[in-house]
C-alpha cells in the first residue's frame, strides 16, 4: 500500500530529523517537525518532478522552501533521494559540510535563499510568471510558515499572483500556529486563512497536515487544477509534532528538548 509506504517514510524522516538535531542542536527542531508529511508527499508521491542528479534541470517542478529554518527534515529526504551523499547528515553545522543551521542555496535541492523569511512567495510568483510566459508546463510549489506570512511582502505577492492568474503557483502553508514568541493568534492573528486567501482570489484547500493520504490527495488535486487562480493548501499542523514537551508549546521554537528525552523517545518507538 502506497499510504503505508508514505506513512513509514514520514516516520523515518521524523526519526532522522530528531537524530540530526541531536548531533546539531543549533537546528530548529520544532518547526522542522510540523511540515514532514508535506515534504514527504511532495517528494515521495510523485507530486513534484525533480532530478536529484541535475537539481536545476529545466524540466523540474520548482519547489521553493521559504520557511528555511523549519525545513531541517528536508536534509534526510534530499540525502535519501540522492541529491547529496548521506554522510552529509553526519556533518550538519560542521566545517566542511554543506548543511547549515539554516539551509542555503548551495545545498542541491534548495532553489533560493530562505534564511530570511517572507521572500520565497514573491520569488515563486516571479518564477511562475516566467514559466507561464514561456508556456512551460512546470509548476511552482512554495512552502511557507504561517508566522512568515506576517511579512507584508508575502501579501504583495498574494495579490500579484491572483491578478496574473498564476494557476501554476501552489502555496503550501505549514500552519502550525506558532511563531517564535508564541501563538500567531496572540501576536497578529491571520484569522481564517481559507477565508482570507479566498477573498484575495485564491483557490483554497484545507487539510490536516499530518494526515499523509489527505495531504497527498490534496496536492495532486491542486496540481491538476489549472483554472486561472493560484492555489493554496492550508495544512494545519502541530509545531514540534510527536515530541512531548515540545508539541504545540508556544515557545517550542526556542526550546531544545534534552538529548535524553529524544533518545528515550526514539528508543520507545523502535
Amino acid at each position: 500500500m502506497k499510504t503505508n509506504f508514505l506513512r513509514d517514510k514520514a516516520h523515518w524522516v521524523w526519526r532522522e530529523t530528531l537524530a540530526v538535531h541531536l548531533r546539531a542542536p543549533e537546528t530548529r527542531i520544532a518547526s522542522s517537525l510540523s511540515p514532514i508529511e508535506i515534504f514527504v508527499a511532495l517528494y515521495y508521491d510523485d507530486v513534484l518532478r525533480f532530478d536529484a542528479i541535475n537539481p536545476l534541470s529545466p524540466e523540474r517542478d520548482r519547489c521553493i522552501i521559504s520557511k528555511g529554518h523549519g525545513s531541517i527534515c528536508m536534509y534526510p529526504i534530499l540525502a535519501d533521494l540522492g541529491f547529496f551523499p548521506k554522510d552529509e547528515l553526519e556533518k550538519v553545522c560542521m566545517a566542511g559540510g554543506i548543511l547549515g543551521g539554516i539551509p542555503d542555496p548551495v545545498i542541491p535541492g534548495y532553489e533560493t535563499v530562505n534564511g530570511s523569511l517572507g521572500h520565497g512567495l514573491g520569488v515563486s510568483a516571479g518564477m511562475a510568471l516566467g514559466l507561464k510566459t514561456r508556456r512551460a508546463d512546470q509548476q511552482v510549489f512554495v512552502v511557507c510558515g504561517d508566522g512568515e506570512l506576517h511579512e507584508g511582502a508575502c501579501w504583495e505577492a498574494i495579490m500579484f499572483a491572483a491578478q496574473h492568474g498564476l494557476d501554476n503557483l501552489n502555496l503550501i502553508i505549514d500552519n502550525n500556529h506558532i511563531a517564535m514568541l508564541g501563538y500567531t493568534d496572540d501576536i497578529v492573528s491571520h484569522g481564517c486563512f481559507s477565508e482570507r486567501l479566498g477573498s484575495f482570489g485564491w483557490s483554497t484547500y484545507e487539510v490536516d497536515g499530518h494526515n499523509i493520504s489527505d495531504v497527498c490527495a490534496t496536492l495532486h488535486s491542486m496540481k491538476a487544477t489549472r483554472d486561472g487562480k493560484p492555489k493554496v493548501m492550508i495544512a494545519n499542523t502541530l509545531k514540534g509534532h510527536g515530541v512531548p514537551g515540545l508539541e504545540n508549546q508556544p515557545l517550542s521554537h526556542i526550546i531544545n528538548p534534552k538529548p535524553e528525552v529524544i533518545d528515550n523517545l526514539l528508543e520507545s518507538l523502535m
Binding site: G122, V123, G126, L131, G152, M159, F160
Partner: peptide
C-alpha cells in the same frame, strides 16, 4: 506590480532565475 517594490524585486528575481 503596482506600488510594491519588495514584490518588484522578488518577482524580478524569479523571472531572472527562469
Amino acid at each position: 506590480v503596482g506600488i510594491a517594490e519588495q514584490n518588484l524585486i522578488n518577482v524580478s528575481a524569479g523571472l531572472a532565475l527562469e
